[in-house]
Design a protein around this nucleic acid. Structure first.
Lengths: 237, 237
DNA sequence: CGTGGCAGAATTGTCGGACAGTCCGATTAT
DNA sequence: ATAATCGGACTGTCCGACAATTCTGCCACG
C-alpha cells in the first residue's frame, strides 16, 4: 500500500507562512476581530520579504479568514461566511459539468432535512426572514431574475433557520448552481410559479406551527416539483 | 430593500486580473490541462508587474483552478478536486464551533442518500475502493488513527460511488470535521469497532447487490450509531 | 468637555529590477 | 537509440521605491 519513500513536496515559503498564520487563527490565538500586524511587521517577524508575506495573506484572505471592512486598510481576522466559501464550491462544481439530476439529488437530501429542523428550532426572527422571502416571491411575478432570487433566498432562509451551520453551509453552494436551471424553468413553464407559491406557503405554515414532519414532506414535494419542471422545460426546448 | 447608493468597492488590480483569468477558465477558453503562459508573459499581456500577477495567480491556485503536477514548474489549468475545496469548508465550519449534533444531522442527510445512489450506480472499480477501505479498517485494529482514517475513506469511497459530484463534494468536508470526534469514540467506546465493522459489511453487501433501499437504511443505522457512540463517549469523559 | 480639523506617520498597492535554483528542450556523445 | 550535457526559461524570493490612502495624536475652537 505505502511506498518506502513518499514524494517530497517542498512547500514554498508563502505557503508555510500561510499555514502558520492559519494555525494561530484556528487556535484562537488571533481572535476574530483582531487586527493583523502590518505586512512590514510580519515580514520582519518571519524574516522574509514583504512580497512573500503578501502572497501568504492573499491565501488567507481568499479563504475568508482575513478580511477588511470597506474602506479599511488593515486586515483583521474574520470568520468565513457561507457566501465566501460556497462560491468556491459551486465554481468547482460548475467546472465539473454538474448535471441537473446531480444537483437535484443533493437538494433532495439536504433541503428537506433543513426544513425539518427549521420547524423545531426556528426563532421568530428566522421565521420572519422566510416569510419575507416568500412575500418577495409573491410580489415579483413579472421579473424572472427577481423571482428566482426570491426562491433562492427562501432556501437560504430555511437553511439558516435550521440552526445547523453544517447544513446551511452545504446548502449555500446549491443555490448558485440552481439559479440558471431555475431561471429557465420559471421562464418557460407557466404553472411553475403557482406551484412554488403553494409549496412555499405550506412549508411556512408547517415551520410556523413547529410541525417538523410536515415541513419535511412539503419540502420534499417542493423539490420534486423542480424535477418535473425541469423535465417539462427540456421537453419543450 | 436596495439602497440608493451601493458601497463602491475598488477592486485592486490583482483581483481584477484573477477574475479575468477565471472567466477564461470557466468559459473553457483555457481548457483543462492547458499550460498557462509564464508569469512574465502574463505581466506583459496585462501590462502590470509580475508581483501583481503572482498575487492574482495565487488566488486561482488556491481555488484549485490552477495547479501543477509534482515537480512541475509551469502552472496548468486543472479542475478543482473535492479535497481542495472541502478543506476550506471544514476550516470555516471549525471556526464556527460546529457541534457534534450539527455535524451528525448533516451526515444523516447526506450519507444515506450517497449510499442509496451508490447501490444503483457504482462501477466495479468504485466497489473495489469501498471494500478496500473496509479491509483496511479490519486490518488496522490496533492503531486508532489508522482506524479512523479507514472509516473516513469508506465514506469518501461511498460518496464517490454515488456517481453524484454534488453529493461527493458536500460529503468531503464532513470527514474532516468527523475525524476528531470519531477518534475519541473509537478510543473510548470499546464496542465501536465491532459495530462499525458490521455496518460497513452490511452496506457493502447492499451496494454489491444493487439493493439501494437496504444500502440507505444500513447507512442510516450506521450513522445513528455514531450518535450513540458519541453519547457514550461524552458520558464517560 | 466634546468636536472638528490637520500634519505627519503608517500602511497598502504597485512597480522596477535582480539572482539563485530548478526544470525543459535541444544538442551532442556513447 | 539512449544517455549525458548545456543553455535558456521560469519560478521563488529578495531589495528598494513611490503614490495614494488611512490612522493617529495633537491642537484649536465652539
Amino acid at each position: 500500500m505505502s511506498d518506502l519513500f513518499a514524494p517530497l513536496d517542498d512547500h514554498p515559503a508563502y505557503r508555510q507562512i500561510a499555514n502558520l498564520i492559519e494555525e494561530r487563527i484556528v487556535a484562537r490565538v488571533l481572535r476574530t476581530g483582531d487586527a493583523l500586524p502590518s505586512e512590514t511587521d510580519l515580514a520582519r517577524q518571519f524574516g522574509v520579504n514583504r512580497s512573500t508575506i503578501r502572497e501568504a495573506i492573499r491565501e488567507l484572505e481568499i479563504h475568508g479568514l482575513l478580511g477588511r471592512g470597506r474602506g479599511e486598510k488593515r486586515l483583521r481576522v474574520t470568520r468565513p461566511e457561507p457566501g465566501s466559501v460556497s462560491s468556491g464550491v459551486s465554481r468547482a462544481l460548475a467546472l465539473h459539468d454538474v448535471t441537473f439530476m446531480e444537483l437535484w439529488e443533493a437538494m433532495m437530501a439536504i433541503e428537506p432535512a433543513a426544513a425539518q429542523y427549521a420547524a423545531t428550532r426556528r426563532t421568530a426572527d428566522q421565521l420572519r426572514s422566510i416569510t419575507r422571502a416568500h412575500a418577495r416571491f409573491n410580489r415579483e411575478i413579472a421579473d424572472t431574475a427577481a423571482t428566482v432570487s426570491a426562491v433562492l433566498d427562501f432556501f437560504t432562509a430555511v437553511a439558516a433557520a435550521s440552526g445547523n451551520q453544517v447544513l446551511a453551509l452545504s446548502q449555500a453552494p446549491l443555490n448558485l448552481l440552481l439559479e440558471p436551471a431555475l431561471s429557465s424553468i420559471v421562464d418557460r413553464v407557466p404553472q411553475a410559479r403557482a406551484r412554488i407559491q403553494t409549496a412555499q406557503g405550506k412549508i411556512i405554515d408547517a415551520i410556523k406551527l413547529n410541525k417538523s414532519e410536515q415541513a419535511r414532506s412539503w419540502m420534499e414535494k417542493h423539490i420534486r416539483d423542480f424535477k418535473r419542471g425541469h423535465e417539462l422545460e427540456t421537453s419543450m426546448a
